[in-house]
Design a protein around this nucleic acid. Sequence first.
DNA 1: ATAAGAATAGTAATCATTATTAAAATATTG
DNA 2: CAATATTTTAATAATGATTACTATTCTTAT
Lengths: 128, 128
Amino acid sequence: MKLSNTLQRRVIIEELRKVKSHPTADELYQLVRQRLPQVSLGTIYRNLELLSEDGQIQKLELTGKQKRFDGNIKEHYHMRCSNCGCIVDVEDKEIDAIHDNLQVLVERNGFDGFRLELIGRCSRCGNT
Amino acid sequence: MKLSNTLQRRVIIEELRKVKSHPTADELYQLVRQRLPQVSLGTIYRNLELLSEDGQIQKLELTGKQKRFDGNIKEHYHMRCSNCGCIVDVEDKEIDAIHDNLQVLVERNGFDGFRLELIGRCSRCGNT
DNA sequence: ATAAGAATAGTAATCATTATTAAAATATTG
DNA sequence: CAATATTTTAATAATGATTACTATTCTTAT
């Protein structure tokens, strides 16, 4: 079924695409509220689910108790900062290469797929 | 600090080591209750955390909203069944090999580590 | 055995998420 | 455009997993 074009939905998409922080539903709620003070948290949750089912945004399958969302639907990797817990995008040719290798290997061994989450330090937290 | 030797703690470890199902805290609570009917769910949670900090059991870093625990502290991979959601151990030479490759690659690119979760069908659910 | 510290059962509180519902907005059809 | 059907919304309640609190009991080290 096609999704209706509602103001709330438009603002949710816009705000999600503005940020690169892979927000949780609640974080996005805070952003959307600045433009639509009456918006309800349930609306955020419902739309994030619907929009990700519809392929307009990405629901991230990551460890941790909160779901996170990404306005960028191009497949790419994520790194979790071992210090602050934030999620950052990984743009890395070599990781793309290992992805392809993993995919082949994993399928050759009868698995359907895999989830890979990188761990490191984000730029804010440095290398120490 | 060293952990005291309590009956509850012993039974929790024993029951966890008996099963290969990577239970959640609540699932383990059901098992422990059969031997200690007065045990409290809080005791299960607290001890699972303490025991994993102490290295006596493994807390699994997996996607999904519930934490899971493993009595086997030897490092090994896990597969999530895409049908029933259960977690099964993966014993696979090739996966071990890719693990080592990934480790090298990931470190060479400045990451500290990674989490890999395989996806497939468990033996109960078959290959369809 | 006793005192100090740790762990327990029971309960309440918290956090993330999902469900419910009546009213409002949007889409469809004639 | 008007009438109707459908979807979505805000507000609220409910759920499920986990954590916090607390008075009492158990362990451990003297």
